[in-house]
Design a protein around this nucleic acid. Sequence first.
DNA 1: ATGTCCTAAAGATTAGGA
Length: 262
Amino acid sequence: MRIATWNVNSITARLPRLLAWLESSGTDVLCIQETKCTDEQFPREQLRELGYESAVNADGRWNGVAVVSRVGLDDVALGLPGGPDYDGAQEPRAISATCDGVRVCSVYVPNGREVDHAHYAYKLRWLEALGAAVSGDAAGERPFAVLGDFNIAPTDEDVYDRAAFDGLTHVTPAERAALEALRGQGLTDVVPRPLKYDVPFTYWDYRQLCFPKNRGMRIDLVYGNKPFASAVQDSYVDREERKGKGASDHAPVVVDLNLAQS
DNA sequence: ATGTCCTAAAGATTAGGA
């Protein structure tokens, strides 16, 4: 089974590339973040024509997550139980589903903006709720992964220049401690191999020629439980998809599972 | 030139988010 996660930065703007990539990559299950659409606007029909069912948690201009699958899509759950509000509202940042026996949770972790911003405190509260939400599946016998845009670089090696992030979000001890807590629940960081250069960055800012200069970050993560991690045959960042006109600022992370022997 | 892109809005540019 080929599973992937991709922050598409608007599924409407990305639709031609998304459909082409699903076909060319042979992805069975794709976790999507930043759909930036309403539930009604989600392109279910175009995906259905390619053989994919869709589970969607989206409500408009910002955020929005989905799982699309051509190998089944059951027991869909939207959001995080007990997840925090922001500006008095729950945001669509998580969705879970079971696809041919594999449980996935597609997440778009709040950005945090600045360390002294209310959004940063919200980010940490949201991660705490995520930890509580996945604890049962993390310890379970069924293959499970929480994957998506975590907006955190797990180590200093996961950013192009640590000094450039002094005082900024994405690299703070508190954010990294939240990831460590997830790993402490039995989840493994399934680190993909890069297709070029040494570090498997997954995101490059649109600005200042970051992609050509490879000024990237590894913030799109796959955290799998033991049954999931032990079934991983290969994982890579498809940085080719970051190239050219009409690209997202994130590249897909692809994971191949061999479930027969696990 | 923040060497950009995406969204929405009493919009034809501005504001907000990343």
